[in-house]
């Protein structure tokens, strides 16, 4: 069966399957978030709801710590905005592929647009797979469900952290498996090398801003290396 013949259900499952390996890293992360939220004195219901209202791993960690430290509300809101700023790049990247979808789809997929769902779906979206929005929905939903379940487990565990088997390493490994096949020419390799170098140099910047500016810097290099005539 070719990709263009893929039905909606099959596209959804393709997205789910592309995301599943990341659960190895996401679930322990979600459990630790639940534990940290409890230790910060956030009520259990609020800690669980935060995973569906904010739905952003690193931002929720930061938020839990800031609540624990008694930070002012505006500072917490600003910090979460800055940590999640990088998602604007994902939004720009998928926007042309979601053109023409009904508004309810755009709202749903924007809500589900995390690092993991984006990474899982983008190779399929770029190859022009049919029902690409169902692939992104499958990946986004799978991550959402795993994150909610992990949060509940973490909140229930309270103070007992699970053993550290370095399962968080599943996330960088999956991202490597997704990015490396995209590095098909010298230009793309140069962009990756610059993104890695800048990310390491700017790592100490607060609120993950170094990550955002490293990606932007690498895109500037991509612009300089791209001939104007090329579409």
């Amino acid at each position: 069966m070719t990709k263009s013949e893929l039905g909606r259900g099959a596209a959804f499952l393709l997205g789910v399957r592309a995301l599943l390996p990341m659960h190895l890293g996401v679930v322990p992360f979600g459990i630790i978030y639940g534990v940290v939220a409890m230790q910060s004195g956030i009520p259990p219901l609020a800690a669980v709801l935060m995973s569906s209202i904010v739905f952003a791993g690193s931002a929720q960690f930061l938020l839990a710590q800031l609540v624990g430290a008694g930070a002012p509300g505006l500072l917490m809101i600003g910090a979460v905005g800055l940590v999640n700023l990088r998602h604007v790049l994902y939004s720009a990247s998928v926007a042309p592929m979601l053109r023409g979808l009904p508004r309810r789809w755009k709202v749903l997929l924007a809500y589900l647009l995390t690092d993991e769902a984006y990474a899982a779906a983008i190779p399929h979206l770029m190859s022009g797979a049919a029902h690409g929005h169902w692939i992104l929905f499958g990946a986004g939903f799978a991550l959402w469900a795993g994150w909610q379940a992990a949060t509940i487990v973490g909140v229930a565990l309270g103070a007992h952290l699970p053993a550290d088997l370095s399962f968080d390493f599943a996330l960088p490994l999956t991202f490597i498996a997704i990015v490396v096949p995209l590095l098909v020419d010298r230009r793309r390799i140069a962009v990756a090398v610059l993104a890695a170098t800048l990310a390491v140099l700017l790592e100490a910047w607060p609120y993950k801003l170094g990550l955002f500016f490293a990606a932007l810097g690498a895109l500037v290099l991509a612009a300089m290396l791209t001939p104007r005539s090329e579409p």
Binding site: R188, A195, A199
Partner: peptide
């Protein structure tokens, strides 16, 4: 180039 730039910066 966004997936390459953003995901590499995330992992490095």
């Amino acid at each position: 180039f966004v997936p390459i730039a953003a995901l590499t910066a995330l992992v490095a």
